[in-house]
Write a protein that binds this DNA or RNA. Sequence first.
DNA 1: ATTCATGTAACTTCATATGTTACAATTCGG
DNA 2: CCGAATTGTAACATATGAAGTTACATGAAT
Lengths: 167, 167
Amino acid sequence: MNRDSKLSGVLHVLLHMAEQEGPVTSEALARMMRTNPVVIRRVMAGLRDQGYVRSERGHGGGWSLARDLSTLTLLDIYRGIGSPSLFAIGHRHEAPGCAVEQAVNEALDQRLQEAETLLLDSFGTVTLAQLSASFHRRLAAHPEWNSASTAHHPDTKHTPSGDRHEH
Amino acid sequence: MNRDSKLSGVLHVLLHMAEQEGPVTSEALARMMRTNPVVIRRVMAGLRDQGYVRSERGHGGGWSLARDLSTLTLLDIYRGIGSPSLFAIGHRHEAPGCAVEQAVNEALDQRLQEAETLLLDSFGTVTLAQLSASFHRRLAAHPEWNSASTAHHPDTKHTPSGDRHEH
DNA sequence: ATTCATGTAACTTCATATGTTACAATTCGG
DNA sequence: CCGAATTGTAACATATGAAGTTACATGAAT
């Protein structure tokens, strides 16, 4: 992957967690994200330390949301994963004493800073509850995608233990 | 370098070229940018194809500006280097059929798209002539940085194997 | 006690941006 | 015409960092 998809991956995971009754294991989440359980743990650990999710060890353990989706914004999650740098372009610092470089960096940084502020502000206006609503609207429109736990890897083998689901 | 500094590097080079009478060799530019002449040629080739700079081969050759700085904006140069992706974050496309992923991607893409538009618009308002003026203001304020062609690498030798090749 | 989880360090793999080498083609100055 | 200087470009090498993997310790449920 050429671009950091951590943010979207984490959002994906969190929305899936919101659909589940109990805790979801790293392995289940990893299957959804087509990645490795350890990768899941690594990134979720940061979110847990900031109080967004809970983890439980041992039998029956896994990950669950610690806060309501309506109290979480994209900005929270962005910060939760460590505020990775937003831009793929930046400035160089090869010749700090060069007046040309200073002029270029000032102009660029100014614009990037403005854009960053606007983008993060807009992240702050989107709650995960809104994303979840959008997800449920999609489901309603396409009943054949019947659940959050399907549609990820239609062909993979067994569904180990599967849904700790529904009464 | 963790972030793509192509844009700032190219701007740096162009402003330096503007200060020179005749063509500037790739090697001279490479020294300024602390990089390799071939890297300079690679990126400048694109700008040349789009009419922003000229190249001349052979003895006495090198690179020169094809247009006045006042007719060039940051946006032109950004496009000139191939419109590299602006953002370090993006979305994933691991599970195209998953409604959660669609909801996440839609929200993210929407905001990123807005931010991109704003940023590029702002790039369009900055001419290289403005950058050059900023550069000259700095020089005036710090006469000890007496010229565009100094202050880059007062001592270090970038070319690994001594100077100049023989034929 | 056994099994199922997370926690985490250490290592491997992979992608890719950047740098380097090599040489052909071109241009200029004698 | 000769030789030095320069770009053009393909091919290869290196470095970096993100992602993935292995291994094993720790903790919890039954």
